[in-house]
């Protein structure tokens, strides 16, 4: 077992355990805190894939942006300090069954896929590759995503406008 594997195990364990905490915690704020660790763990996993740009983006967008917005939302919720506000849904059995089916699907896919194996491959400059890919090969999805974001922006501006009449 090599050192990198050891670190991988640690990060993976952190990600999974904190993800469980996010789901099962009775306190929304604690869930958000756990999400912080999950997101960081995922960023760490990206680093293992030599995707340092993606890892940094993960931290910047998800930790610095989305997580903060989530906590904002939680805090602005009414009666947040009462512990009755939890995120577990009533039909637990149904949710459990669906989650299990999804798990089976993911497991099946990951077991049957032909993974790339071989010596560790270091990308020279990830950013160059990413830019090249986005603006050549995946231009259409990229533009589509920007359209979606624009729509979201406009929608939120419309919602936050004062209602006239």
């Amino acid at each position: 077992m090599s050192m990198s594997e050891l670190v991988f195990i640690f990060i993976a364990a952190l990600t999974i355990s904190s993800a469980f905490w996010v789901v099962f915690s009775n306190n929304l704020i604690y869930s958000a805190v756990a999400l912080l660790f999950t997101l960081f763990g995922v960023a760490g996993l990206y680093v293992f894939l030599f995707a340092d740009f993606i890892a940094a983006t993960q931290v910047m967008v998800y930790v610095g942006g989305i997580l903060v917005l989530i906590i904002f939302g939680v805090m602005l919720t009414n009666q947040i300090s009462e512990s009755t506000v939890t995120q577990t849904n009533r039909p637990r059995l149904l949710a459990g069954v669906i989650a299990f089916i999804i798990f089976l699907m993911v497991a099946y896919i990951s077991l049957t896929t032909q993974w790339h194996e071989g010596t560790v491959q270091t990308a020279e400059k990830t950013t160059t590759v990413i830019g090249d890919m986005i603006l050549n090969e995946y231009l259409l999805p990229f533009e589509a995503v920007s359209l979606v974001l624009l729509a979201a922006l406009l929608g939120s501006a419309l919602l936050s406008r004062k209602q006239h009449g």
Binding site: A56, V59, M60, G64
Partner: peptide
């Protein structure tokens, strides 16, 4: 990019 990303962690 790393510096910008990490300095946004403190907000949480």
């Amino acid at each position: 990019f790393f510096i910008l990303a990490m300095s946004s962690v403190g907000v949480v």
